[in-house]
Design a protein around this nucleic acid. Sequence first.
DNA 1: CTGAGATCCTGTCTGC
DNA 2: TGCAGACAGGATCTCA
Length: 282
Amino acid sequence: MIDFYISPINIINMPELPEVETIKNALKKVLSKQVILDFEIFNSKLRWIIQKNIKSIIKNNAVEKVTRRGKYICINFKNGSLIIHLGMTGILKILDLKNNTIEKHDHYQFTLKKYKIRFNDIRKFGSVHWANSLNEHFLIRKLGIEPLNNTFTQEYLFKKSRNRKLSVKNFIMNQNIVTGVGNIYASEALFLSKINPIKKSYRLKEYECKMLVLSIKKVLKNAIKYGGTTLRNFKKIDGNPGYFKQKLLVYGKEFCPVCTNSKLTKIKIGGRMSYYCKVCQK
DNA sequence: CTGAGATCCTGTCTGC
DNA sequence: TGCAGACAGGATCTCA
């Protein structure tokens, strides 16, 4: 009766940095110092084919620590790391050892001494990789700065944005610039910064970069505090849904929370739905 | 190198 | 009721 999920659990949920951080922290409690007794693949065709040799590498190997880099969960062993991405619909189920019911969209699982951890992903945008050296892995090595680090500053963002013609929204969602910001928190941070998401990056002023850096940090920290955004049924380790959704200012909303009479503009930028107030955001 | 657009996937929703 | 088509989006890939 210990079955519970520790990931966003429905379609239309987008695990971004706060959600992955929350999941990582939950996973840490279950996985730290544990020995992997088995690794089984039910369906290897995810975003990338799951490497067949993972089982032989991690079997009887002990987890040293669980970390996060951008939107990736890293399970670190003494000789390397597993890199897990949840894609859009990936969830991790913590199951009783006796649970042998493989459900639709279950793709792989770890067996520990007391639990099984099973990955389920409807849209198969998720992935799992083994890396002998985490920071040299192709998924990790190109990643930009962690937004909650002190090195993520207005000077950095200003410098990086020079000569860039793409929209600010796509710019801050580029994982090679700053990691972990996805569609929801990009919209939120741009609203707090009073910056129009379609503005060309090279036109950002220094004070706008300052606002943007502060807003990104604020939005992400706040979301972590509230346990990640709930779009439908995000469940934390205790099984209670997160409730940051109610805290969202513009994403999925109809009216501007500041100038309440203005209808928010809803357009696609780079193929992604974007919400902003054309009165407040210039 | 840059940036725009296609692509992968499947459950849900809309319209005929 | 049934079914076709649109839609959602993270990250990579292709192409100009």
